[in-house]
Design a protein around this nucleic acid. Structure first.
Length: 787
DNA sequence: CAGTGAGCGAGCTTCCGCTTGACTT
């Protein structure tokens, strides 16, 4: 048995460290926290100084019992969890749970996983820092109190099973606030003027923009008319050098943002892939808020840049963390070995690795240098002036490997990219020819909706949540139904374009699509309802600064300046009073909004959230006639639906004729408009308005779908018409009644026999049954309906 | 992907952070 047991948080880390230390050391992992508050309401005794009840959760029992055994056999136990609040608490929980003794236990910390760093840490052991532990307990207890007292208020006043918490409720609030800003936003139009000039005989073309816009069309028209007979001349020419610096290496949040923008990954996907890279030793730890690179990393990055690109591309840089509440227990995310420009693996792993490698390498490279030229151009008949910008890269520097993208980039209108192009050689006083001048009506844009990644960025700025929880938080608010991630179609809008060409001014109307969204987060009706309720009754908790305020107090506790139970008393007293007060006095949250009267019957029309989601109701239950109901469609919200839109909902489903002696009806479901026939569903092709579908079209759609279905069939079986092998989206699979079964890797789809199908079907029903059980036991949300 | 939209009222839901799998499509 080894004399020393060293415990870290992550098994991948343990494996690496074990290699650095001799056989006197056994290195094991705790897999994060090993103890937590019991899940019941008696976890914290608020009447007895917040005394906590901890337990080892079921999935940690095995880890704990193994560690216990090993600790008993070891002479010294080294607690090497991370150097932050949570890490310190993990060490303390280990100390308690493993029944360690003071003499035989040592607490150590290190910031990089290298042999010298670890050996040095071992030479400088310390004791567990109880101030830090207490700060963590205050954090843990506060989160439990907030979550487990607020959620039941929602169950009573809104709807069962809802949740609220310090982090998730603010995340939802950010989305609701932003949605309202967008709803309220009134775009303003102005005419933007772009001219295309040319120089001398070579007729080299370049673009210039007028330094001001015109608010109305008359002014724009007058300007163009004035320009018909004008001459143009370069008034001034200014050339300035400019520089661009590389961005800091990735943290969890910046990695999530760039992977979302450049690779289109969700934050959860990014983290799963990064975890695989970490476990296979390709990158450093992926849950970090630090932009710091270790000394070893700096040295190897320098070497790599010098050999791969040359010395002038290297520049040593150290970055400082900007985000609030960073705890910096780890390094920035970087490749383990800088000389590995790419790796083996599946395409998503390769692409994410490449992104991480480029960003980390670029962060130690020299700045890119540009020469920016600004030319001002006079108009003989007007006082305004045109401005042309040109940019020439003099030295690429870090741009040789990496270009950081921004959120705005994706919505830049093609017409508007007048900047950063090359200018022909110009001289002050030079006369210019005009090829064309265009005044385009442009609208101001509302604030952008959040993506998963931009919401993470915002949360990080506010110091809310931690690297390990960003992705789970984004999932939670979607799972609770507060938020949906989806695409939405935009609306058509017209804009006017005036053109001056060959001495003539012409006017044209054009259309564009505005407000189309791809993979954006939208608050749902229930999300809005819950948010408004919380904002009304628990303003302090859902305040954007709440976390920052309590974090400051946690820091004071960590520094020994404040007693942790005193802090909790101060918080809990007023909070709990507000909870009781709200339960007793507050009205049930109502989602109802009156839209007006039905023009045909005069009955009242209202929208509200029903048992199965948002609905429109015509008439009230007091009327003699029964009220009519219709569900809102995807993309429609209680807050914004109009009376006209609500009435539209009652026009569907509608019969469009019959086919094979059965009725066909058209309706709109969760996946868009469809035709229903004999209990089968056929979705409508895009662009076809469900209100316009006639019998002939419907039949055509049904027959086309059937033909396609037949084409998908690879093999059928005489023994059973319900069994067949089909070509699916991810390859061939077996359809066996309602069961969809994967084809084992060693089998060829075309050669499978019916006996094999039966065997696979039985094996599949067993495993899927077991899975279902496990899911419900874990309390996961299953979407199966009660039958 | 429909239909549903009331009430009966037991027993359940829920937080944030630290870690990985073991599942599915």
């Amino acid at each position: 048995m080894a004399k020393n047991l060293l415990i870290v948080e992550s098994p991948a880390k343990a494996k690496t460290i074990e290699g650095y230390l001799g056989k006197d050391f056994l290195v094991k992992s705790s897999y994060g926290h090993i103890r937590d508050l019991v899940k019941t309401d008696d976890a914290i005794d608020t009447t007895n100084n917040f005394k906590q009840k901890y337990e080892v959760p079921a999935d940690k029992k095995a880890v704990v019992s193994e560690l216990k055994k090993l600790a008993k056999a070891a002479e010294t136990v080294w607690l090497a969890s991370d150097e932050d609040r949570e890490g310190e608490a993990i060490s303390w929980h280990l100390y308690e749970t493993l029944n360690l003794s003071d003499q035989s236990t040592k607490r150590i910390v290190f910031h990089e996983i290298t042999k010298p760093a670890i050996l040095k840490a071992i030479e400088q052991p310390r004791k567990i820092d109880f101030n830090l532990v207490n700060a963590q307990q205050a954090r843990r207890v506060l989160d439990r109190l907030v979550g487990f007292e607020l959620s039941p208020v929602l169950w009573k006043k809104v709807k069962p099973s809802l949740s609220a918490g310090r982090v998730q409720s603010v995340a939802v609030r950010l989305l609701v606030d932003r949605e309202r800003e967008i709803i309220k936003f009134a775009p303003e139009a102005a005419f933007r003027l772009v001219a295309i000039f040319y120089t001398g005989e070579k007729k080299e073309l370049f673009k210039a923009e007028l330094s001001q816009r015109f608010a109305n069309i008359a002014d724009a028209e007058r300007f163009l008319n004035d320009c018909i007979s004008a001459t143009y001349e370069v008034k001034s020419l200014e050339t300035k050098p400019s520089k661009r610096n590389p961005a800091a290496p990735f943290t969890t949040s910046t990695l999530q943002q760039e992977a979302s923008r450049k690779l289109g990954f969700s934050v959860a996907r990014t983290m799963t892939i990064a975890q695989r890279l970490y476990e296979s030793g390709k990158i450093t730890y992926m849950r970090t808020d630090s932009v710091n690179l270790s000394e070893t990393a700096l040295v190897t990055a320098e070497k790599e840049i010098n050999t791969a690109y040359g010395q002038k591309y290297y520049k040593k840089r150290q970055y400082k963390t900007k985000s609030a509440g960073a705890q910096e227990a780890h390094e920035a995310i970087r490749p383990t070995y800088f000389d590995q420009h790419s790796i083996e693996g599946d395409s998503s792993e390769r692409r994410l690795y490449e992104l991480i490698w480029k960003r980390a390498i670029a962060s130690q490279m020299s700045e890119a240098e540009f020469e920016k030229t600004t030319a001002k151009i006079n108009i003989s008949t007007r006082t305004e002036e045109f401005v042309a910008n040109g940019e020439v890269m003099k030295f690429d520097g870090f741009l040789k490997v990496y270009f950081e993208s921004t959120d705005e980039e994706q919505d830049i209108n093609i017409d508007e990219s007048g900047d950063n192009s090359l200018l022909p050689p110009l001289q002050s006083g030079q006369k210019l020819g005009l090829k064309e001048m265009v005044a385009t009506e442009r609208y101001s844009r509302p604030p952008a909706r959040y993506t998963e990644a931009s919401l993470v960025k915002k949360l990080e700025e506010l110091g809310i949540g931690r690297p390990s929880t960003y992705a789970p938080t984004i999932s939670t608010i979607q799972n609770r139904g507060y938020v949906v991630k989806e695409d939405r179609d935009g609306k058509q809008r017209t804009y006017r374009v005036l053109k001056l060409n060959a001495g003539n001014v012409t006017t044209e109307k054009k259309t564009e699509i505005t407000g189309a969204e791809k993979s954006k987060l939208f608050p749902t009706d229930i999300g809005i309802l819950v948010n408004d309720f919380l904002v009304e009754h628990f303003k302090d908790i859902v305040d954007f600064n709440f976390t920052a305020i309590v974090e400051k107090e946690f820091d004071e506790i960590a520094n020994g300046l404040k007693e942790w139970t005193a802090m909790l008393h101060n918080f809990y007293g007023p909070f709990h009073t507000e909870v009781t007060n709200t339960i007793e006095n507050a009205d049930r949250a109502s989602s109802e909004r009156l839209l007006g009267k039905d023009p045909q019957t005069g009955k009242q029309i209202s929208v509200r959230i029903g048992r199965f989601g948002p609905l429109v109701q015509i008439g009230s239950s007091d009327d003699e006639e029964k009220p009519q109901f219709a569900s809102l469609r995807a993309g429609q919200m209680i807050e914004t639906i109009t009376l006209e839109e609500a009435l539209e909902l009652f026009k569907l489903p509608k019969k469009v004729g019959s086919y094979e002696d059965k009725d066909m009806s058209v309706a709109i479901g969760r996946f868009g408009p469809y035709i229903r026939h004999n209990n089968d569903f056929y979705s409508l092709p895009k662009g076809l308005d469900p209100m316009d579908v006639n019998e002939e079209q419907a039949v055509e759609i049904i027959e086309l779908k059937r033909k396609k279905d037949i084409e998908k069939i690879i093999k059928t079986f005489d023994e059973n018409p319900d069994a067949r092998i089909e070509q699916g989206r991810w390859g061939p699979f077996i359809r066996f009644g309602k069961q969809n079964i994967k084809i084992p890797k060693n089998k060829e789809a075309g050669t499978i026999t019916y006996e094999e199908v039966l065997a696979l079907a039985e094996a599949d029903s067993k495993t899927s049954g077991a899975t279902k059980k496990k899911n419900t036991a874990r309390g996961k949300t299953t979407k199966t309906k009660k039958s």
